[in-house]
Design a protein around this nucleic acid. Structure first.
Lengths: 218, 218
DNA sequence: ATTATTTTTTAGTATAGTCTAAAATGGTAT
DNA sequence: ATACCATTTTAGACTATACTAAAAAATAAT
């Protein structure tokens, strides 16, 4: 049985590793979890002993198959709750996050099952993210450069093409990050630069060069 | 801000003190919370420092007005969630407890408000317990001896008239306790003895003498 | 009223999760 | 190849919550 914190770390690793494919650095987890690297190391060792990640000192971590399934169980719960909050309780999509982050940890299979049934077995959450099934299967959706999104379209940043420090630092500075929900507010015909809204809050203006190197999913 | 554990202790004290009226013994809290008395003492000191209870060594605790309000906020959330679980998700009334005990700790005023609205501002939970309003007001309902309940009627054990060790030990042995949800299954005309169902699970047969000393609320 | 019993508290320990500061490692750049 | 730098890990500390065992206080019994 995983604790709240363990579930959250696992979820973060899942997202950072693009669904368990890639290895993830301590620093990135630390950033995503808003904890210090030292705390991450502690947790990585614990999760390693539990067999949900493969942990090699100084080389970051990989999810094991068990870890992937557990992460997806949490993500499933989170997304089902988000559907509930938006569809039934009329939350706006930017309000649901913190609440769902708590609800997702409620330990009751029956609860999730009944809720899923009550909601009519939704396949995607309010942000368009797929809801994994009970067995950890996710229908993956195509990803493409942010530059190809039309004005008004929403998506989520899922990866970067260019992973140079310069580029990543820039993204960090402007507040774009893997996992961010975005919406295209405006697009300049002339040079292909775009203005996007991040997480329903912050608006960012970026060149086409930058937009081409950010991969999104709808 | 209270932690989960603090909220739970406060809730237990509220119930044991009959809504904050009476003082509560360490041992009783320990029993209700299924923790050891030493742990209770620790927590009582902490809650005392936070000003939500009045704690006098060796003399048990009283809720302060702040404490009472906080306890009622948690109870309000719990009962609203119970209504949701039973009415919308088709849980049976004996299934809701553990789940609601987790849901009640989700920290979001908006969530409770919206849920309350979604459920049509219910006044009582599935067990018939009143749902306190946002300001900590509870419509109290009359309490009376279990012996006066008719066959088929449900209620909750809220107090004992006779608090002798012998009587309490007996109640403990048969599995009756303050807070238990009960339903009268049968009543013998001849001697007034009754058979009750505790928490939808365990059936207990008791003499009229016993039933007269158990106070229930509907 | 003194002893015995029960209840409560203290003291010391454990686990989970976090932190800071310092040490270790790996990768990069000369 | 070595020195530097960023990253990562270790070490030690802290808070929250629980525990056990022993001491202290209140209560009951003689």
């Amino acid at each position: 049985m995983l604790t709240f914190a363990e579930e959250n770390y696992l979820k973060a690793i899942y997202h950072l590793s693009d669904g368990g494919k890639k290895g993830v650095a301590t620093n990135d987890v630390s950033h995503a979890m808003r904890t210090k690297p030292a705390s991450v190391t502690d947790m990585m060792q614990k999760l390693g002993e539990k067999g949900v990640i493969e942990y090699r000192k100084y080389y970051g971590v990989h999810l094991t198959e068990d870890g992937r399934k557990l992460a997806l169980q949490t993500i499933r719960k989170q997304r089902i709750w988000e559907v509930f909050l938006v569809e039934k309780l009329k939350f706006s999509w930017d309000e649901v996050h913190e609440v769902a982050d708590e609800l997702e940890h409620v330990r009751s299979q029956i609860l999730v099952q009944r809720l899923d049934e009550y909601l009519g077995y939704p396949k995607f959450d309010p942000h368009g993210d797929p809801i994994p099934d009970e067995f950890g299967e996710v229908k993956s959706r195509p990803r493409f450069p942010l530059s190809e999104l039309e004005v008004g379209a929403s998506g989520q940043i899922v990866a970067v093409k260019d992973s140079s420090a310069a580029f990543l630092k820039y993204l960090d500075k402007v507040g774009a990050y893997i996992g961010a929900r975005i919406k295209v507010l405006d697009k300049v015909e002339f040079d292909g630069s775009v203005e996007i809204l991040v997480d329903g809050k912050k608006s960012i203006f970026m060149s086409k060069d930058v937009a081409m190197n950010i991969l999104v999913m709808q």
